[in-house]
C-alpha cells in the first residue's frame, strides 16, 4: 500500500513536469473559472437572502484558496517560447484580476455586519460585478484553451 502511495507521488511529479504549457494554463483557467463562478453564485444567494453570511463567507474563503492554487500551479511552470510567454502573462493577469475581485468581495462581506455596514452594501454589489466581469474573461479563455484534460 505504501509502495503504491510512493509510486503515485513520484508519477505525479513526473506528470507535472512533463505536461505541455498550454495544458497547464488551461487547467489553471478551468480551476479559476470554477472558483469565480462559485463566488458569483454565493454572492447572488446572499443578495437574495437565500444563504447566510457564514456559508457565503466560507465559500468565498475556499474559493480564494482555489484561485491561489491555480496561480501557484501556473507560476511553477516556466514558459519556453515567446508565444507561451504571452499566454502566461495573459492568464496570470486574468487570475490576478479574479483574486482582486474576490478579495474585494470578502472585504465587503466582512464589513457588511459591522455597525457602519449599510453604507458599504453597495461595495458588495461592486465586488459582485467585478467578479462577474472576471468570470466572463475566464470563460472566454476557457473557450479558447479547453479544460486542459
Amino acid at each position: 500500500m505504501s509502495a503504491a502511495v510512493l509510486l503515485f507521488v513520484l508519477s505525479q511529479g513526473l506528470i507535472a513536469c512533463s505536461a505541455p504549457f498550454e495544458q497547464v494554463a488551461a487547467g489553471a483557467v478551468n480551476q479559476a473559472s470554477s472558483a469565480v463562478g462559485t463566488s458569483v453564485l454565493s454572492l447572488d444567494l446572499l443578495a437574495r437572502e437565500q444563504a447566510g453570511t457564514p456559508a457565503v463567507g466560507t465559500s468565498l474563503e475556499d474559493m480564494a484558496g482555489e484561485l491561489e492554487d491555480a496561480r501557484k500551479g501556473l507560476l511553477d511552470k516556466v514558459p519556453a517560447t515567446a508565444e507561451e510567454r504571452g499566454l502566461h502573462r495573459e492568464v496570470i493577469n486574468a487570475l490576478v484580476r479574479a483574486e482582486t475581485a474576490l478579495a474585494l468581495a470578502r472585504q465587503a462581506l466582512e464589513s457588511k455586519d459591522s455597525p457602519a455596514g449599510d453604507a458599504h452594501t453597495p461595495a458588495l454589489r461592486d465586488a459582485r460585478n467585478a467578479l462577474a466581469a472576471s468570470a466572463k474573461e475566464l470563460e472566454g479563455l476557457r473557450q479558447r484553451l479547453g479544460t486542459g484534460r
Binding site: S34, E66, E139
Partner: peptide, 11 residues
C-alpha cells in the same frame, strides 16, 4: 451549467 467543479464542502 455554471462551469463549477466541486472542490469544497461549501460548494
Amino acid at each position: 451549467p455554471a462551469g463549477i467543479e466541486v472542490t469544497s464542502l461549501s460548494q
